[in-house]
Design a protein around this nucleic acid. Sequence first.
DNA 1: CAGCATCCATTATGATACTG
DNA 2: CAGTATCATAATGGATGCTG
Lengths: 118, 118
Amino acid sequence: MASRKGPYICGIDAALDVVSGKWKGLVLWELNAHGTRRYAELRRALHGVSEKMLTQHLRQMEQDGLISRTVYPEVPPRVEYTLTEAGAALNEALQPLGEWGRGRIRREALDVVGDAAS
Amino acid sequence: MASRKGPYICGIDAALDVVSGKWKGLVLWELNAHGTRRYAELRRALHGVSEKMLTQHLRQMEQDGLISRTVYPEVPPRVEYTLTEAGAALNEALQPLGEWGRGRIRREALDVVGDAAS
DNA sequence: CAGCATCCATTATGATACTG
DNA sequence: CAGTATCATAATGGATGCTG
């Protein structure tokens, strides 16, 4: 998951590096759909994620400049996450991929994909 | 790396599942650029990949219906890999992401990305 | 509420040697 | 040439308990 920031051969490589991770896609999706989400809201949205993983992903994405984190010095504490411009742009760039994925989900429901050789 | 084939929340999720893996993006890139590549050619193109990883990725992508594998019963043996329609479509869908990534690489070259807060 | 620390299980990745 | 087998390490994912 950790962005390796290494020398990339192509843009795809660089982009995939930033979105790889079990929940990053969903986080982007959630933030894109709702604009702003609190920690606990994300936790509920990403059904099944552990606190550690959520925090880890959020920190990573923050460091990658995809999301911004705002802490409200209240009690009880409140932290809100939202997409940065780069994150929003990434989401845009992710749309065609999302369509491809939806098509694939449909195909999977109808047929077994791995059976192309028959 | 192994596609989990699990229930996906959204298309992004499903698509990312299929392309996640250290070398899959590069394999797609290579096959898209050259049309057809042999095992050894891919190995050279993906500089630094081990035989095991390459084979593993290729098998996974074949199973996911992204690439097709053709064995020529000659001696010495020859195996060629090429994109399937689904793989080509995925590559198409990946283009915007690639552009985003290229932009990101440019920004990284100029500035430190993680320094957005300053 | 938001999160960190710790321990543990599972996966992903990798180097090396060997085979048809 | 195109792999497979084996061994080892690193990264990731997750459960639990604790803190301000």
